[in-house]
Design a protein around this nucleic acid. Structure first.
Lengths: 201, 201
DNA sequence: GTCTATAACTCGATAGAC
DNA sequence: GTCTATCGAGTTATAGAC
């Protein structure tokens, strides 16, 4: 039997879908059971309770979320190239998983501050390499002076927020689904261009 | 009796606090009653049910959210000045109401697409004036070519996302509350500077 | 492992006294 | 208007048959 067909995998896929769409508080075990094509009792057989099922999903998602970021942050690429790689990779990823960032941020805001740290206790993401790279480019006079933290926040913000605010943007800008998707596709090159134009000398 | 001391006002203030922190699904009528210093039955006396109380809060918040944006978007200022006004006004506002954007976006993502439109049926926000202003500046050759929608998304993204992702940024960048707040204060000038550097010729 | 049935509990809502 | 007490629907979780 393929791994994806196992009951456990079906539950995890269903739970991921329901939790990311409705959040922990809004999700019902019944919804997850229905989505997985099984009954509620089986959920408790595989995962003792709702909390454990949630944590399983949440930990996996948030670690994956940052693992991919860290890979780019730590790569050997030059700064401008790295900015391009990050934005296109990241926007592409979020196009295919539009609910994940809002889900993670909503759930993190419900929990104590050190919950994030606990989540990454084995492998905490850290942007040090990118920070030092930015500082070096500033020092070398290749880009204008800017605080690395601010630049990194700007980059992540522009990649992620349009998806989190999709319903609002669609309504306010009066665009349909297709037009919105086109705009997002274009952002894969627009955002890095915007950033590089701002920091280059 | 001052308006703020009336029971209705106490309920609204409590509901706002609890709903924005926990979301509609996560909020309990008991939490709101406790926060307001009254009992559950009184909530139902003033607002028939949870849904009506929620809609009251949500409508007020989301309209206020956009009303302030629209004011700046429609002002008579020149483009660069307008960008500065928007960012400093907006970041300042979110510093004092850090939960609101995440709350609004989370709730909007739970509801049908035309829920947003229904919310603004009387006074839909529209960025047309700013869009035309950007187009004019591009045409006049005062700024480099850029799609107005992309520029507007960039601006809003950089103002809002750091607050939505606060727990994550704090953990990943390893900064404490005070340092985070300092970074946000600086963003009131950093963000417009970042944008203008990118689009100016 | 998977199901049905149901226990145990949470929570929104109402009844009714004051 | 405000409170206490309680109902009843909906949910998580468990028991027990297969």
């Amino acid at each position: 039997m393929k791994k994806d067909d196992s009951t456990e995998e079906k539950i995890l896929a269903a739970a991921r879908k329901v939790f990311t769409a409705k959040g922990m508080a809004g999700a019902r075990m019944q919804d997850i059971a229905d989505e997985a094509g099984i009954n509620k009792a089986l959920l408790h057989y595989y995962f003792r309770n709702k909390e454990q099922l949630f944590e399983n999903i949440f930990k996996k998602l948030s670690q994956g979320f940052w693992q991919q970021i860290s890979q780019v942050f730590d790569s050997e690429e030059a700064l401008f190239k790295k900015i391009e790689s990050f934005c296109s990779m990241y926007i592409e990823k979020v196009i295919h998983n539009p609910y994940i960032p809002l889900f993670i941020m909503h759930e993190l805001n419900q929990r104590p501050v050190n919950f994030v740290k606990k989540m990454f206790n084995d492998n905490p993401p850290n942007p040090n390499r990118l920070v030092m790279q930015i500082q070096a480019e500033v020092k070398a006079g290749n880009i204008r002076p800017i605080a690395p933290q601010q630049l990194i926040m700007n980059m992540i913000s522009m990649c992620v927020l349009p998806f989190i605010g999709k319903p609002m943007f669609m309504s306010v800008m009066n665009v349909d689904e297709k037009t919105f998707n086109d705009l997002m596709q274009k952002r894969k090159t627009e955002v890095p261009e915007f950033i590089i134009n701002s920091i280059k000398k």
